[in-house]
Structures are given as C-alpha cells and as structure tokens.
Design a protein around this nucleic acid. Structure first.
Length: 892
RNA sequence: GGGUGGUUAGCUCAGUUGGUUAGAGCGCCGGUCUCACAUACCGGAGGUCGCAGGUUCGAAUCCUGCACCGCCCACCA
C-alpha cells in the first residue's frame, strides 16, 4: 500500500506511518524541497556570522568512493549544525580537473578508436576533453546530492572555470614577477613509450629481480682503482663523478682526487656525500646526475656536470658517443660487453629491487632530466609555519601538526610544470629574441622588444597549482567580490592525511600570499576507509563498497550514520558491507519510535511543555537524560569528535527513549497523566531529531514534518534551532529510575534463569531497606510486574527468610526474590550463588587490601578512600545475604 | 633508514586529564512474532587490556625497552 494511502486510512485522522522506514523515494523528494527553498544558499553581505567549508574537490573523472562519503559527511555534519545555530553556512562544492588522470581517460577512449592525442593535435584534443567533462562531469554532483550534502550548488566551481583560470594566471604572474618562479632542471619519471612525464604516483614501483654489476674505474693518477656498482650499466656513459661517505675510512684519501670513466675517458671527481651508504655495494657510488634523482641532488651539491645520454624514446643520445642510437637495453648489453673486454667488469650478482613502471603501458620508466618550472617555496613557507605556531591554525588530531611543520621546515621547491595538454597552460611567452615573460592576458607582442613572434610554453601547470587557491578562487578572487569579503577566511577544512602537503600546506601558503590571511581555522584529518581486512579500497582489488549501492539498499542516512559512528577522528576504519545495517536498523528504530509517539494522538492534540511540578519520575528522568545527551553532543562536536556525538544520540534514542521511556509511557497513556506523557514523548523526540539531523538529515526531516505544528519552530528541521539543554536537571529522579531499571533487570534475570514460561505467574518480592527506595518501587510496582511478566509484586522492607527462596541481590540493601516453589533448579541455583559469592569475595578482598594499606589511606584523596570503605561495606552485606540464600537451598 | 599510529571480547573497535565490578556493534548460546519496531525485544556466555620492567596508595590509561602489524616520507647505487 502506498504511503499516502496508509495515512489516509488512519482512523483518527492523524498520519499513520508504515511500520518500516523506506528511504529511497523520500530522500530525493526531501532533497529537492530543501534545494528549491534555497536553504543551501547563504547570501553575502551584512548578516549573521558566516561559516564556510570548501569541499576538497574530487577528481572530475572519478566516482565518489567511501573515502569521499566519509569526508563529505563530516563536512555536512558541521555545516548543518552551524546552519541550525543560525550562522550563514556555506558548503562550497566543486570538482578538480585532475590533469593527468582526466587526460588519461580521454586518451584511453582515443586508443579504443586507434588514435593518439598527437593524431588529433592539441586543440581538438582539448575540445574532446571538454566534451567528455560536459558529459560526465556532473556525475559527482549527483552523488553528493544523493548523500544529502547541503552544498550551495549555485556556487559550484570547477578548477578550469574561467574565474579559477584567471586566479591561476594572476597568482602565476605575481609569483613570476616576485621572482618566486624560475626554470630549472629536474629529474622526472619519463615513459618512453607514451612520450610523457609521469607523476611519482603514476610510476608504480614493482619488485623484480635484476642484476647488480660491479665495475672498476681506474684512478686518474694511476695509483689503483675504485669499484662501483650499478643496475643500469648503460647510464655509466653519463657518469660525471664518484661519491663516497665522508666518514668512510676506506676512501678517505680518495676524496678530492679523480677517476677515469672507462669506455669514455671522462674525468670523474671523487666527492664526499653523506647520502652514500657505506654498507651497501662497494660503498662508492657512480654519480649520474642526468639519470637518477639521488645522483641529481649529489651532483647539485657538488657542482657536477649533467650529461644526458638518452633521447626521449629511450635510445642513446649523441652524448653516448659510440653507443648513440642504440635502444637502452641493447646499449646495456653493448656496454657490458665493452667493459668485460676492458677487464673493468669485476662482478655480477642477482638482486631484487623496485623498478618504476608506467601504470598505463607497463613500460619501465626512465628517470629523465628535463627543464621544468619551479616555485621557490621557502619564502612562502614562513607564514604557513607561523600560522601553526601562533595558534591561528590548528590541526586535529594534533599529531599531524608535527608532520605539517616538519614538511614546511624542510620544504623543497615545487616543480609545477607537466608535459601534458589538459590543464592550465603555463602563461609564459618567449619572443624571437628570447625575451621570456608571464602575462595575465594572452599577449600579441613581446613586452620588452615588441616582437610579434611569440611562443607560449607548451607545458601545463600541476593540478595542485589551481587547487592551492581553492578557498578563495572559488569565492571570486582576484575580484574583490562580496562573497570573498563575507566567506573568506573559511572555517573548517576536512581532508585526508595523504594530501596534507600537496594541498593543505600549500593552501595555507597561498592564503597568506594572495589574501594575507590564513584560509581556515581548523583542519580536520579524517581516516582512510578500508575493507574488512584492512586493505585500502581500490578498483584494482575490487574490494570497494560503492556508496551508491549502500544508498540504494539502506538509504543515505544509514550510510552516513555507519560511516560517522565508526570513525573516531583521524583513525582508519574497516568496513564490511553488512556494517551499514547498523545505520539502517537505527533509522528504522527511530522511525518506529516516532510512529509510537504519533500513534493514537487525539485529533488536534496540542503538546504543551508541562509544568515541571506536574511531571512524574520517568518524565523527569527522560528529560534529564536528554539534557545530558545534548551536552555530550555539544562537547563532542566542539572537539570535532563526530563519532562520539552521533553515538550519544544513538544511545539516548535507542536505550533510554525506546527501551525504557516508551515502555514506561505505555501504562500511563490511558490514565490521568496521558496527555502529559504524550507531550513528553513528543518533546523529547522533537529535540532528539534536531540533535540527530546533521548526521541523518532525511529521516529526521521526514519525521519532524509529521510532528504536530505547535512543536515545529521552522518550516524545515534544517533551519530549526540547534538544541540547547532545556534546564532539566533531576539527579534524584535519575537515581530512582536507575534503581527501578536494576530491579526490573533482576526480575527478568530471575525468570530467564529458571525458564519461567512467558505466560506463567511468578510472584516477585522486592525487598528494599530504605523507605525512599520502597516508595519509588511502590509507585512503579505495576511496571515491574508488567516488564517482568510477573503477575504480582510485593514491596517489603526485609528480605524474605527461610527455605525455598531464590534471590537476586540488585545492590546492597535491595533484592528481588521469588519463591522457589517448583520453579527452581536447585543445583543450578547453588552453582550460580557459589560463583557469585566467589566473585564478590574477590572484590571484597581487593577492597580490604587497599583499606588495610596505610599508604593508600594516607595518600589517596579522602573521597576515594571513602568510596572504597562504602564499597567494602556493601560487599560484606551482599555476601552475607548470598550466604543466607545458599543456606536456604540446603535440604531442597 | 627517518617519522608516525596501533596491539582491549570470536570479529571490527570505543575507553578525553590515572580512581566503583573495562564498554558498544556484529557474531555466538537460550527464550519471545508481548497491541512502535523480528531491521525487534529479553536473558546469557566470552577479556591475565601484546610482552617485560618502572613510576604511583592505585595503571588499559604515564615512562622505558622488546615483539608483531600498519601508514607517511626517503629509498638504495
């Protein structure tokens, strides 16, 4: 039966909810309403205090995975809560053009058609990428909507938007003019087959066996030889030095002298460098600055020459002399042969080592020296470090602050050029006379000599060169927009630790450089989502859980709940598909709690906040617990512990509200307190829904809309006020209800233990020493009876004596007893009592030991000692009673 | 190798300044279709808190060392 019919069919005219929560249809509908009403869109200019989060822009090529779902849910939790607190909350969405990844996707498409990007040429290739992005670029947005993200879609940005491209140009030119951008040589990962540079991530390391060759280089002065080792003998043609460790006694006297490169005859200076590991190989390293990143840095430090012996297609270059034109592997054999002929090859051994391979074509990647653009980082790093040290910026969990600081303290210049086509083209032009300049607008003549023969640098910028501007470029910078004035600096950045350097640290640097202000106050590092075995979820392993499938099956709220509840801030989480059932079950539980509260409301029922004096103990208790929960949630959120916050609401709703309060309300609904109980049921529910809304937006909104109008202070729970504690502090009632819960539990346990059938009468006697306890229990004797399925319950002062009694000592001075009659398995009871006595005796022994220790009594705080005394006394009395009970079993 | 996190119930994990008998979810065992919910309810079993020292009246919690596991960075000529 469709939901609407079910409602219409309700006899009393109130809405009747179906017994199961069905999220699928309802979520899309709710989302559309929120969006139409503009709740996601805050206005700039004067108004309430703003609160801003920018999304870490996902790659436009991707689909959202569980890591995104967690990351974005945390952002949405914070945003929704601040929005409810009345702030102008802006959750700014967008996507990243992801240079290499996107280019690869399109190139793969082309490959299927038997074409390469070179076949198309730069311009039509780019058109093709744009077409791709037009077609698929919005898929991520659809997913974010399904997750319930309250993003301002009017402000969605893409890193290749016109505005953001302008920002990229602006900052490039500023840096260039400030002398912070320069051109230099750098070793990159080069795939000879694809003819392109690869990022480190794209050059996948694979363990494989290889050979380590030991080669003897003669010393220049003829006094002997120095032995070096290599896995790539052909690169020796590019050797320009030899390095040893400065403390290595074997080679100490060689430093400063020189060796002669076999086959080539080049003079190789011998230098001392701490990079060299004296333990490995021969302890002497041949230095090839043009073909090994480490050698590059050694060469840099010691001013060694760079000789590039390879061409881009991995054949030997002119510099390789006699070997020029040979493929690198043919050259390797030829070099080995020649070395052997000279008697310079002195040894070969098998080793396993990691070799980089192109992740697309599996070709072995060649470390390759090339000209690149760099940003000088040191001047930018200062303010970013200072932000942390001054407390302007904080990172949660705090341990990441050290990592962040360490990186900045040792920051290296940033290589920003990429030899691909998809991205922001480097805005540097060179004229026929060799004048190079950067420009904001495409120039038609040289700014220095006026020449109209201009050529733009063919490379594009690293993707991060646009994303490091994200917190302000998305708000309109370099224009001085109202958005920028209102929403910058942003407040909280939630991200994964992997991009702390790539992205976060650089955003802080850019924030200070461009805006003169830190881009955000707090950085929250969320953990990695892994599979049940702890492996990273990845496409290649096929172990990922698709958020869309979870949403289809269980709903977005279930997904959000499980993710947030299982993710303590900053720790990795392990998830199996069935874990999302917890979220689904909770949504359904909540649904049914509301169903109960709404069910049987008289037509036109108006809940009112009852005077406190009218409230009975269970009512006061639940409101007391609600206030406690409200404070817990607030405290946890203030410390960015979203998991604790949502768990607090979960425990309250399930275990306080459903397990106890609803049960206690049932017998009172028909009595004189009926309307009061109905009101408290609704009030507690309404506030809990608001507390839960940031985490589970859909089900809370749906139920909230079902509540009587008088309870709702807004058109949507999204914009209803965030709950403050209601001033409900009833510690006495809380204590009384705790007693009642214990007694009921004991009664249930007694029945369960003796397998008393559900329908069977089992008259219980509850003994309580204090009049106050008895009074409480008297008032709820009916509940005890009902909840324990007992037909009658006596409340007495003294525990029953004599034979045939089975008792459960609830706490010192309170006991639930049942006449054994024919209920009890005496032997079982004797055993149970025995182990219980043993247990308490152990505890008593420990307590007495402490109290007998004069150092404890003297040094521990008085309150702790007092508590220990009380504990010992209680244990003694309980033990005494258990002994009696055991004795009463004798003879049965 | 340099950092850094972890080791608590069968599994996945909480446990915030050291202080009543260490908790949850799932799983397991037993019992319930009790009129909000079987996506539920009730009861139960199950833990020497990785190991060894130390500090303390008192340690899962603080310190040291060790053993495993993981992540980040640098990676081996």
């Amino acid at each position: 039966m469709p939901e609407t019919e079910a409602r219409r069919a309700a006899p009393d005219g109130t809405a009747a909810l179906p017994p199961r929560y069905n999220p699928s249809a309802l979520e899309l509908r709710r989302y559309a309403v929120w969006r139409e009403r503009g709740y996601f869109h805050p206005e700039p200019g004067p108004g309430p205090e703003p609160y801003t989060i920018v999304i870490p822009p996902p790659n436009v090529t991707g689909v959202l995975h569980m890591g995104h779902a967690l990351n974005n849910t945390l952002q949405d939790v914070l945003i929704r809560r601040e929005r409810m607190r009345g702030r102008r909350a802006l959750y700014l969405p967008g996507t990243d053009h992801a240079g290499i990844a996107t280019q690869n996707v399109v190139e793969r498409q082309l490959a299927d058609e038997g074409k390469t990007r070179q076949d198309l040429g730069r311009e039509s290739f780019l058109q093709r990428v744009w077409a791709w992005r037009e077609k698929y670029g919005d898929e991520i947005y659809d997913q974010l909507m399904r997750l319930g993200m309250s993003c301002d879609w009017d402000r969605a940005r893409f890193t290749m938007d016109e505005g953001l491209s302008r920002a990229v140009r602006e900052v490039f030119v500023r840096l260039f003019d400030d002398g912070l951008i320069y051109r230099g040589q750098y070793i990159i990962n080069w795939c000879p087959r694809c003819g392109t540079a690869l990022s480190d991530e794209e050059a996948e390391k694979h363990e494989q066996t290889g050979r380590l060759y030991r080669v003897r280089y003669p010393l220049e002065d003829g006094s002997g030889f120095v032995e070096v080792a290599t896995t790539r003998p052909e690169t020796m043609l590019g050797d320009t030095g030899i390095a040893v460790h400065p403390d290595d006694d074997r080679y100490r006297d060689l430093v400063g002298r020189a060796a002669i490169l076999p086959l080539v005859g080049r003079r190789l200076p011998i230098v001392a460098d701490a990079y060299v590991d004296p333990e490995y190989g021969t302890g002497a390293v041949k230095v090839t600055p043009a073909h090994d990143p480490n050698d590059f840095w050694i060469g840099e430090r010691h001013g060694l020459e760079r000789v590039n012996v390879l061409d881009p297609d991995a054949t030997m270059s002119e510099a390789a002399g006699a070997f020029a034109g040979l493929d690198r592997y043919a050259a390797r054999d030829a070099v080995l042969e020649a070395l052997e002929a000279e008697g310079a090859l002195v040894g070969v051994e098998e080793i396993t080592h990691a070799v980089g391979r192109c992740y697309r074509c599996d070709t072995v990647v060649e470390p390759y020296l090339s000209d690149q653009w760099f940003v000088r980082m040191e001047p930018l790093a200062g303010p970013a470090l200072e932000a942390l040290r001054s407390g302007r910026l904080s990172i949660t969990p705090a341990r990441w602050e050290k990592v962040y600081a360490h990186w900045l303290e040792n920051v290296r210049d940033w290589c920003i050029s990429r030899q691909i086509w998809w991205g922001h083209r480097i805005p540097v032009w060179t004229c026929a006379s060799g004048h190079a300049f950067a420009a904001r607008e495409d120039p038609d003549h040289c700014l220095e000599c006026g020449s109209e023969e201009l050529e733009q640098d063919p490379d594009v910028l690293d993707t991060w060169f646009s994303s490091w501007l994200w917190p302000f470029s998305t708000l309109g910078w370099p224009e001085e927009t109202e958005d920028l004035a209102t929403f910058y600096p942003t407040n909280t950045l939630v991200t994964a630790s992997e991009i702390l350097f790539f992205w976060v640290a650089r955003m802080v640097m850019a924030g200070y450089y461009c805006m003169g202000e830190c881009p955000f106050d707090d950085v929250i590092i969320n953990g990695t989502v892994r599979d049940a075995q702890g492996r990273r979820m990845s496409k290649s392993l096929g172990n990922g859980i698709d958020p869309r499938e979870v949403i289809d099956e269980h709903g977005a709220d279930a997904l959000r709940f499980t993710l947030v509840a299982s993710a303590p801030t900053g720790t990795d989480i392990h998830l199996a598909p069935e874990d999302f059932k917890q979220g689904r079950n909770f949504a359904n539980k909540l649904w049914n709690a509301a169903r109960f509260a709404l069910m049987n409301l008289p037509a036109g029922f108006r809940p009112e906040a009852p005077a406190i004096t009218d409230l009975e103990e269970p009512d006061r208790w639940i409101l007391h617990r609600l206030d406690e929960t409200t404070r817990r949630v607030e405290g946890a959120l203030a410390a960015f512990r979203m998991n604790e916050a949502v768990q607090a609401v979960y425990e309250f709703l399930w275990h306080d509200y459903c397990d106890w309060y609803i049960e206690w309300s049932k017998p009172r609904l028909d009595g004189p307190a009926g309307d009061r109980v109905r009101s408290v049921l609704l009030i507690a529910l309404e506030r809990s829904l608001r507390l839960l809304h940031p985490f589970m937006p859909f089900v809370t909104e749906e139920l909230w809309q079902q509540l009587p109008d008088a309870l709702r202070e807004a058109d949507s729970i999204m914009v209803a006020p965030w709950p403050d504690p209601g001033g409900w502090s009833f510690p006495q009632e809380a204590e009384a209800m705790a007693l009642l819960q214990d007694v009921i539990g004991a009664a249930r346990a007694l029945r369960a233990r003796y397998d008393v059938p559900p329908g069977r009468r089992a008259p219980m006697t509850v003994a309580a020493e204090t009049a106050a306890d008895r009074a409480t229990l008297e008032r709820y004797a009916g509940d005890i009876a009902r909840l324990s399925s007992a037909s009658e319950t006596r409340i007495v002062a003294d525990a029953p004596r004599g034979d045939g009694i089975a008792g459960e000592v609830v706490r010192s001075g309170v006991e639930v007893a049942v006449r054994l009659a024919d209920l009890v398995d005496v032997e079982r009871e004797r055993e149970r009592l025995g182990s219980e006595i043993e247990n308490l005796e152990g505890l008593l022994g420990a307590a007495r030991g402490k109290l007998a220790d004069e150092r404890f009594v003297a040094r521990a705080p008085a309150a702790v000692v007092e508590r220990e005394r009380e504990k010992a006394a209680d244990l003694e009395r309980s033990l005494e009673r258990l002994g009696e009970l055991r004795a009463s079993l004798e003879g049965h």
